[in-house]
Simulated assay, not measured.
Amino acid sequence: MPTGFTHTTAIPLFYRVDGHGDPLLLLHGGPGAHHDYLYPQMLALADRHRVVTYDQRGGGRSKTDDPAPITWQTQVADLAQVLAELGVAPPGAGGATVVGYSWGALLAMLYALQATMDATLPPVARLVLISPAPISRAWRDEFETTLAVRGRSDAIRAMRDTLTASGLRDSDPAAFRQRSFELSVAGYFADPARATALTPFRVTGKVQQSVWQSLGDFDLRQSLRAVRVPTLVIHGRQDPIPLASATAAAEALGGECVVLEACGHVPYVERPDELFRTIERFLTATA
């Protein structure tokens, strides 16, 4: 598993490469998070592809002391340099295959939109958008309200009570921290009981806030119509992010939207077989 730090970006960004075959770039969620939490499950992509991923600026091992705000434009500029430096969009290949999850899917759309307007940027050949973050401020507000309500559900409250009564805090602090993390994200799942065996992660709040603020009162439904590359959108029926946002993204991009039943925001845990089968079908058909 080659790892390293980029040298063409404004600050060094940590990256890793897994597998062999046609390259694709995997973008993690956040913003302000890091790539680790997508693994080991998303390593299934490395069975047939050379998967390149990196910690986006301000998160994970790509943290910075630079006081300048990190914006969506910052992340797009970094992404362009990563594509060029790490050979994900080799000359003559027609562009890069970008697989984005959650915020990473929105970042992929923002980058593809910029690349259609700036011929100096490495082009995008295909987009795979998994559980994409909302493409408008209104849908983001709806998502935040839904997630907050789910976090107060009877099922999650009961699991928290069970953890408190378990004695793990004293007997096994590491196990207690692990379970506490899982319960903190259980509202993202169609069945909160499925929130187990997850890789913990942290979000750098300052980065998350500055990126979302930079988007302002955004609505990408019309601007995304300028992007015309093969696109696959995959979204869970029970994702707290509104399904209407995902279907609108697919419609604007002229792409396909696959809805996974009994699935929330984390299909690589909730519906991995169906998720990876759908992705491989799309990549084979658009090769």
Rank of each mutant, 00 (worst) to 15 (best):
D219P: 01
A287P: 06
A248M: 04
D47F: 03
Y15F: 14
S62M: 11
Y268K: 01
G94D: 12
Q75V: 06
F282C: 06
P91T: 05
V258W: 02
L27C: 07
A186C: 03
F218K: 13
A246V: 13
D118M: 11
A155K: 02
L232G: 10
Q238H: 12
G104M: 03
S153Y: 12
L43P: 00
G32T: 13
H235N: 07
A96C: 06
I70G: 02
M159H: 10
R61T: 00
G100L: 04
A148T: 15
Q213A: 11
P12Q: 05
S102D: 14
G167A: 08
L26W: 02
E270T: 14
Q208I: 06
R202F: 09
L168R: 07
L183P: 04
L107M: 02
A115W: 06
I234N: 01
L232T: 14
L110R: 15
R16I: 06
G30E: 04
T120F: 05
L113V: 01
H34L: 14
L283N: 10
S214A: 04
R177Q: 09
L121C: 10
V149K: 09
T53K: 00
V17E: 09
F282Q: 08
L38G: 08
A105K: 00
Q56P: 11
A46K: 07
E251H: 13
E270C: 15
V203K: 13
A77H: 12
P90C: 07
L83T: 15
L129P: 00
P134W: 02
A244E: 15
V149G: 00
V229S: 01
V185N: 03
F176G: 04
A80Y: 02
A68W: 00
I130K: 08
I130E: 05
A252F: 03
G187P: 09
A148M: 06
P67M: 14
P132A: 04
M117W: 00
L83S: 13
F181Q: 06
R277A: 15
L107Q: 07
A226G: 02
A244Q: 13
W212S: 04
T199P: 04
G264L: 11
T196K: 13
V76N: 06
T162V: 06
A33S: 15
L45W: 03
G104L: 04
R271S: 00
R57Y: 10
V17S: 01
L121H: 08
Y39T: 09
E182G: 07
P240I: 09
A158Q: 14
A193V: 08
H235R: 14
A115E: 03
S180W: 06
D18Q: 14
V233H: 03
A285Q: 14
L232Y: 09
V99F: 02
S131C: 10
Y15E: 11
T286S: 13
T64R: 03
L86D: 01
S171V: 01
V227L: 07
T162F: 10
P90N: 12
A195C: 08
P240L: 06
G58L: 11
D65E: 11
A68H: 02
A197C: 13
W72C: 07
P40R: 07
L24Y: 01
D47W: 00
R225Q: 13
I156W: 11
S184H: 05
P173L: 09
